[in-house]
């Protein structure tokens, strides 16, 4: 019985850990957040069929808030979809995803109800919008700017750079 008790505790602990949020760093203008795969999503949002434009966007759930990280600029949809593929490759077969963003909006009502995102992202009351800096997983790092994964660019422009 003791073995099964220990096993049960371990399973619960691992289950909780994989869903837990880790905040590496946070200020009123910066967030470095890691979430489980289940609490993460990315896609080319706002696909405009007429002008063939869309914007790369990323989502992470923390408590009852959905953090939305947006690219600084819109792009052609086929370009965005290529990027989407590259970012999804980084998040394949990993359990944790880390996102860095700056310059948030005020916390506001969740507006994802009409978006093609998994249902679990629609149920939370609030969302907060950030400027996307980079995404990291155990498979690598990819950023908006070419040098965005360099350690000296960690703060995304908010702190003195070398």
């Amino acid at each position: 019985m003791k073995f099964f008790e220990i096993l049960f505790i371990l399973v619960v602990f691992i289950g909780c850990s994989s869903h837990s949020v880790k905040i590496y760093n946070r200020s009123d203008r910066f967030i470095d957040i890691e979430v489980s795969k289940e609490d993460f999503y990315l896609f080319c949002a706002d696909i405009d069929k007429k002008e063939s434009k869309s914007i790369m966007s990323f989502y992470a759930i923390e408590d009852n808030v959905v953090h939305e990280f947006l690219f600084r600029s819109i792009s052609k949809t086929d370009w965005c979809l290529k990027l989407q593929k590259k970012y999804r490759k980084l998040t394949q077969d990993v359990s944790r995803i880390r996102l860095i963003g700056i310059d948030p909006s005020q916390k506001k009502k969740n507006t994802l109800k009409t978006d093609p995102v998994p249902e679990r992202f629609k149920v939370y009351s609030y969302m907060k919008n950030w400027v996307f800096i980079r995404l990291e997983t155990e498979r690598g790092c990819k950023a908006y700017f070419d040098t965005g994964c360099d350690p000296e660019k960690y703060w995304g422009g908010l702190f003195p750079q070398k």
């Binding site: 600084r72 600029s73 700056i102 908006y144 700017f145 070419d146 040098t147 995304g156 422009g157 908010l158 750079q161």
Partner: peptide
């Protein structure tokens, strides 16, 4: 973000 040497 006022970074002179940045590219994307």
């Amino acid at each position: 973000s006022f970074d002179v040497n940045i590219s994307a």
